[in-house]
Nucleic acid binder design. Structure first.
Length: 115
RNA sequence: CGGCAUAGCGGCGCUAUCGUCUUUGCUGCGCAAGCGGCAGGGAAGGAAAGUCCGGACAGCAUAGGGCAACGCACCACCUAACGGGUGGGGCGCCUGUGAAAACAGGCGUACAGAAAGUGCCACAGAAAAUUACUUCCUCAGGGCAACCUGCGGUAAAGGUGAAAAUGUGGGGUAAGAGCCCACAUCCCGGAAUGGUAACAUUAUGGGAGGGUAAACCUUGCGUGCUGAAAUGCCAUGUAAACGGUCGUUUGAGGGCUGCCCGCCUGAUGACCGAGGGUAGGCAGAUACAGGCGCUCAGUGAUGAGCGUCGCAGAUAAAUGAUAGCGGCCGAUGCGAAAGCAAAGGCACAGAAUCCGGCUUAUAAGCUAUGCCGGGUG
RNA sequence: UUUCCUGUGGUGUAAUGGCAGCACGUCUGAUUUUGGUUCAGAAGAUCGUGGUUCAAGUCCAUGCAGGAAAA
C-alpha cells in the first residue's frame, strides 16, 4: 500500500510538511484513515532528532484526528496518508499543532472535491 | 577566594490526565489463527554511537596437509578471549633534593632482530658505508731554490649535513691508523648473587663499530571460512515448461576457504540465456562470561562464597504531549550587605542477536593535579 | 545488520618517502573603439588530530565526510 501511495497518490505541501494521500479501501470500518510519518535522514543525521520529530507529529495528529475522522465518515471516504517532514530545523509542539489543524482541514476539502 | 586547562566520578526527580510497545491473569467472539474488554507488571545508554578489536552462537568435512595472506611482538599475571586490563622491568621527558653522581615523585612509551641478507639515505659535502678531493709521508725524476710531475702509503686535519667511521690519554710510525695499551660505550658466551621472569649488579673470555624493520625481510607466536539478511521450520505462489552448452563410473559440477593436494557428494544432473512466481509468519530473540549488596583472598586487574532481584524486545521499527510541584544553574532587577524575586536553561545522545573491551561526544555539580589573577597573615 | 572503497586549489586530475605539478576556471595588466581570441603575471590545495622518520600527500593509529555491495 505504501508503494502504491507513493506511485499514484496526490500531494500538496503546507510548510513544514509534504502530504501525500489517496483513496483506499481499508477493509474495515473502525477507522477511516491510515497515516504514516517520515523524516529524511539526510536532513537529520541523528536518530534522536528523527524520533523527536516523528513523535511530535504523531502527537499533534492524534490530538486533532477526531473531527477529521467524523468529517470523513460523513462523506463516506477512506484515505491513506503520508506526512513527510521537509524543514531543516526541529519545530516545537505548538507550531506543529497549528499546522496540523490547517493540514487536516485542507485534506478533507481536497478529498471531498475529487469525489 | 576566583578563573582556565587536563583527567576521573556523574548523567534531574515526583504526581495527574490523554496516548505508544510489550507481558501476566480473568474474560467475550471465533473450529483455529486471531480480534476485543477489564485489572495489574515492565519499557533505552554511559556511551545504546563509531564499527576499531575479541568472543559466544550458527552453518559449512566436526574444518586434514602444504604454500600464500593477515595479525601480534620487554616480562609475569588477569580473562571465555583480545590488539584489552593490572603489576613489574628497560628507555625517554618533566619536577624536586643535591656541587655532582645519584635518589624520589609524576607522565609517556607499536619496547623482538640493523652482528642473516637486500634496498634506501634528497640538498650540501672529499666521502652517506668495499670512500679518497685537498692536506700529510716514503721513493723516483726534474729544478739553483721555492716547488712541480709520477708510482705508492695513509685515513690523523678540513667550511657540509638530521647523521661523518666510537671518545679521552698514552705508545707506535716515514707519515698515520683500535695498529697496540688503559679507561669509557655496546654485543655475544658461559658463571655468581638477587628476582617466577623481563632485568639488575659483579667479575671474566671473545668480539663490534652510522641510521632506517609504522622499507622489504628474518625469528617466534597466532588466525579454517562465512556472518543473525547466519541458520531451522511453516505458509503462499509459479513453469518438473522453452532455447543453448557440458556430463552420467574413463565423473560435468557441487560441498560459502586465494592456490595445490587430500576427503565427501554427485545424474529426472549442472551451468548460461530469456521468461514466470514469492515479498508473509514462527523459532533464533532476550536468563545471562546478568545486576546489586556483604564477606574473604590478592599490591592490583580479578577471583571465590553467601544473600537478593528479574530489569526493553520492536521489525519502516514502541517512551510522547499537557498541567502542577520540586532539584541545580541563572541573564537581570531590588538591596549598604546578608539576601530576596526572577525570564530562561539542564549536555552528548535512541536498543535492533548477545556479551567483554577500545575509541570518540558530553551541561550542571563533585574530586584530583597544574597554571594564572586577587586578598589576608 | 554486515562488508568494502575513496578523500590533493573553485572543478577535473598527476606526484619511486626528498622544493606539491598540469589543464580549465578566478583576478590583474597589455593588445582592441569595446567584447572575445591572444600574450604576460598573480592568488589559491594534500579531510582533521596524533605518531614513526633527518624529512610524510605518501607509512601507522584514530576520528570526520562521501560512496559502493550483500536476500
Amino acid at each position: 500500500m505504501i508503494e502504491t501511495l507513493f506511485r499514484e497518490g496526490k500531494a500538496f505541501s503546507i510548510f513544514p510538511y509534504r502530504v501525500i494521500y489517496m483513496h483506499a479501501s481499508l477493509h474495515t470500518d473502525k477507522y477511516p484513515v491510515q497515516a504514516g510519518f517520515s523524516v529524511s535522514s539526510r536532513k537529520f543525521p541523528h536518530a534522536v532528532d528523527r524520533n523527536r520529530i516523528k513523535r511530535l507529529g504523531r502527537e499533534a495528529y492524534r490530538l486533532q484526528k477526531q473531527p477529521f475522522h467524523t468529517a470523513l465518515r460523513d462523506s463516506g471516504l477512506q484515505l491513506a496518508v503520508f506526512f513527510i517532514y521537509t524543514d531543516k530545523k526541529i519545530a516545537d509542539f505548538d507550531t506543529l499543532s497549528r499546522k496540523f489543524s490547517v493540514i487536516l482541514e485542507k485534506l478533507v476539502k481536497e478529498a471531498g472535491k475529487k469525489e
